[in-house]
């Protein structure tokens, strides 16, 4: 410890007072070469950091793309299950068991979309240049209206009254919203891949 303090003191003394000494020229030459070496090392370090940063950014982009593709697949599943449910509701003769089966399939798709949206929502919003913010808002809104439609439908079925036509229209509208949100999401994925 004591030796280290002495070494640092001697070094600072050398740096501050040696230029006034007789060997000024050789000292400044040494200092310059040290400075050049340090700046070359720093340049090399910055260059290396930039290159590695690029690799890390690519990896992050790849991860987001994979997660968004998963979300898009779940959205497509939700869209399909919702379509089957609406087709069953519009059929004149449909059993209650069939409708409940479609409802539970749509509910499970909704849960799937919700968990994936929770996982990737923040990353999607951060891709604002690729339209991620709007896509996330559209998906959340379509998700909310689909969930609302399902609860209303379940209430109607539970009360054993016929499903009103305006509820089916509402279901059609939310289906369109899901489809539009998925298209928006696919655009984001496409722009992330280019």
């Amino acid at each position: 410890m004591r030796q280290g303090i002495v070494f640092v003191t001697l070094l600072s003394g050398l740096l501050f007072y040696a230029p006034t000494a007789a060997s000024q020229e050789s000292f400044s030459w040494g200092l310059n070469s040290l400075r050049n070496a340090a700046s070359a090392m720093l340049d090399w370090f910055e260059n290396l950091s930039q290159q590695i940063n690029e690799i890390a950014n690519n990896e992050e982009r790849r991860r987001i793309t994979v997660a968004l593709t998963d979300l898009s697949e779940s959205m497509y599943g939700l869209e399909q299950n919702s379509r089957y449910l609406l087709e069953a509701l519009e059929r004149p003769s449909v059993s209650e068991g069939e409708v409940s089966r479609y409802i539970s399939a749509t509910e499970s798709s909704l849960l799937d979309v919700r968990s994936k949206l929770e996982a990737v929502g923040l990353s999607l919003r951060e891709q604002y240049r690729a339209g991620g913010f709007e896509a996330e808002r559209e998906i959340s809104s379509a998700f909310g209206s689909r969930a609302g439609f399902l609860y209303e439908l379940k209430d109607t079925i539970r009360s054993e009254s016929p499903v009103p036509n305006d509820l089916i229209q509402q279901g059609r509208a939310t289906l369109e919203a899901i489809s539009a949100a998925n298209e928006e999401l696919l655009k984001v994925i496409g722009s992330l891949q280019t």
């Binding site: 950091s49 590695i52 940063n53 990896e59």
Partner: peptide
């Protein structure tokens, strides 16, 4: 060091920030 970190990040699911720390760790 760089290759091992890259493989861990790419296939092991570790954070890409680890890759960014490699030059500093090497220095």
């Amino acid at each position: 060091m760089l290759s091992a970190t890259y493989l861990l990040v790419r296939f092991g699911g570790l954070s890409p920030d680890l890759l960014r720390a490699v030059p500093a760790l090497f220095f």
